[in-house]
């Protein structure tokens, strides 16, 4: 019992630390690594509760595949530097977000701690946990009998997801947006043109000539890569 308590406290601390790291660190690589910590902590907690198979796939799928995928994308896109998120452009977004988070936490705790009986009600009788043999056998038995349709549908879902990912990341030469409808291009284009104009102004300021930036210049400039 003491061992389990100790394990819980340690893994819980790692989980919380990792979670806070994901939210608070500025470098996406650090965020991803913090996420790994949380995932590991959760895996340990699974072991602590006897869900060995789930702990294994938690490590293999999450830490091994998903987080690696994240890191892959980060490296691929070259965004592995610190992003400046100090200035919040949306008024009241941060306080409201924190308030909402606290409200969710508070309400959940109230529900958990004050409920005289369990929130989920009575025991379901799918299959008991404490059977002889490894738990993966019992899980497989349920998955391939009672949940066989759901299982097959998730298989289809995975296939569709793979196809979708391939289609999405295919390179195309078409402009991203309809330039007839948005002649100014995307937000990025507008911002870039404004920056260019500003830079141009600074250059021209010496010659005391105010140049009119050619905003109509090349709307496709930012649309292509």
């Amino acid at each position: 019992m003491r061992v389990e308590m100790f394990t819980f406290l340690l893994a819980g601390a790692i989980c919380l630390g990792g979670a806070l790291g994901v939210v608070l660190l500025k470098n996406p690589v650090h965020n991803a690594l913090s996420l790994v910590a949380t995932l590991f902590g959760v895996a340990v907690l699974f072991v602590n509760q006897g869900a060995y198979f789930l702990a294994a796939i938690q490590v293999i799928v999450y830490a091994g595949a998903i987080v690696i995928l994240f890191l892959f994308v980060i490296m691929l896109l070259g965004v592995d530097r610190e992003t400046d998120e100090g200035r919040e452009p949306l008024v009241a977004q941060r306080p409201l977000a924190v308030a909402t988070g606290l409200a969710i936490l508070g309400l959940s705790l109230v529900a958990l701690l004050s409920a005289g009986q369990r929130a989920t009600g009575d025991k379901a009788d799918l299959a008991p946990l404490n059977q002889p043999g490894p738990d993966i056998n019992h899980l497989a038995e349920v998955l391939f009998t009672r949940y066989v349709y759901a299982f097959e549908i998730t298989a289809v879902l995975l296939t569709v997801a793979v196809v979708g990912a391939v289609v999405l990341s295919k390179r195309t030469n078409e402009p991203l947006i309809d330039l007839d409808e948005f002649p100014e291009g995307t937000v990025v284009d507008v911002r870039r043109r404004a920056d260019d104009a500003k830079a141009q102004d600074e250059v021209d300021a010496d010659a005391e000539v105010v140049a009119v930036p050619d905003t109509e210049g090349d709307p496709q400039e930012g649309g292509d890569d």
């Binding site: 939210v23 977000a97 988070g101």
Partner: peptide, 15 residues
């Protein structure tokens, strides 16, 4: 613990 992680995640998502 799960509630804590969930709330942190939610706040992070919004912030």
């Amino acid at each position: 613990l799960a509630a804590l992680i969930f709330s942190i995640g939610a706040v992070g998502l919004l912030v």
